[in-house]
Amino acid sequence: MKLVISIDVEEEGLFSGKYSRTPPGVRNVSHLDALNFVYDEFGFPLTLLTSYQVAQDDAASDMLIRMREERGAEIGAHLHPWNTPPLEDVGPEPVRSDAMPMDILRAKMATLFDSLEQRFGKPATSFRMGRWDFGAQVEQLLPEFGILVDASHAPLRHARGGPDRFLTPSYDPYLLPAVGDYPRVTEAPLTMLPVMPITARCTHTFARLMPKTIRESILANYSAVAAAGIQPVWYPSTSMRWAARLHRRRGGNVLVMFLHSSELMPGHSPNFPNQEAVDRLVEKIRHFLGWLTQSGPIQGVTLSELHKRAD
């Protein structure tokens, strides 16, 4: 079984409900060293999905380069369109990707990918869209920019007002539809599984028959009450282990985990107001990885390394 540990490496201020064009900073990136044990103790590389604001900061970028050189990390791309140039006025932020003019979205992607290549010396080949906003336009554009693997799908979660990815296949990576003559992009969804598989489709079908407010509530709560996942911020330790067991039993071969870099800096996420809370998160990840390595053969890989493994 393969394990991907992906980090959204991004600016602060993202859990405030505001989407500023001038974010407060990227000091949180220095706290990524709390995850050095992932490679030092287990040999698992991280995939660092990096925003434009981080790529503009010398100290933050230097740290990512060290993690790549010393611990085998991959530096990928993470688009926050609300503060990635060009900063056009296309409506109140955050504007959904499918509501944005295609030429502006393409220009923002070009800014992000050019800045990452200039800063880190090689093009990014893995990607995650901010706010899980992987709409049709993003899917159309990614091959154009040389992306091999996307990790923007969170199965069984509902993004209000966003694309409906609730029924995204929640097992192993798969190939997205072809776009022109470009190589097909591999989709690597987060590992989140229905405890009873039939309930996901039944819930989605039932919810679509309900008025909007009820539909939104049903879909938004499903992942908390009827699913298990290996996401350490969203699920307790028992659920993380349960999800890994279910995945293996159902024939899955790839586990995909994620968290935000700012969740490692005390006070920059509602779930982690102090150092004690951050320390608990780090120990939770360490214990899960220890259990995972003892429960069966596991190999750590980066996102781009999954591309050749997709069916």
Rank of each mutant, 00 (worst) to 15 (best):
S61W: 05
S97K: 02
G252R: 01
A124I: 08
E117S: 12
R160H: 10
G296D: 07
E74W: 08
P94K: 08
D114R: 15
H260Y: 03
E11Y: 11
I75L: 06
R201M: 11
P94G: 09
S126D: 10
P169R: 11
P92D: 11
R128G: 08
I65H: 01
R286Y: 06
T238P: 04
I7M: 01
P163N: 10
T203G: 06
D57R: 05
A244T: 01
I285M: 07
M240N: 14
P273F: 02
D57M: 05
A226G: 04
L306M: 10
R286G: 06
S126P: 13
W242C: 08
G76Y: 09
P270M: 07
P143D: 13
R241N: 00
I230N: 14
C202W: 10
V95A: 04
Y52K: 06
R249P: 00
S6L: 00
R309N: 10
Q231T: 12
E144D: 08
Y174L: 09
V179A: 04
P45N: 01
A34I: 01
A224S: 07
G43H: 02
M265W: 09
G162C: 05
E283R: 13
F288E: 06
A159Y: 07
R286S: 01
H80V: 05
A159W: 10
F37R: 06
D40N: 00
L175E: 08
S239D: 15
R165T: 09
E93C: 13
T191E: 08
V282E: 00
F134L: 15
A244P: 05
G146N: 14
R184V: 04
M240Q: 15
A220Q: 12
L175H: 04
A73Q: 01
S304C: 14
Y174K: 05
R68D: 02
L35V: 04
G121H: 05
E41T: 11
A151H: 11
Y39V: 01
M210E: 03
P197M: 13
R165F: 04
I65Y: 06
I285L: 10
I214S: 11
L289F: 12
P81N: 13
V282T: 01
H80W: 11
G296W: 04
P123W: 14
Y39W: 11
Q56R: 15
N253Y: 09
V138G: 06
F166I: 03
G229T: 07
A220L: 12
R215S: 14
L175W: 11
F288D: 03
A226R: 12
R21Q: 15
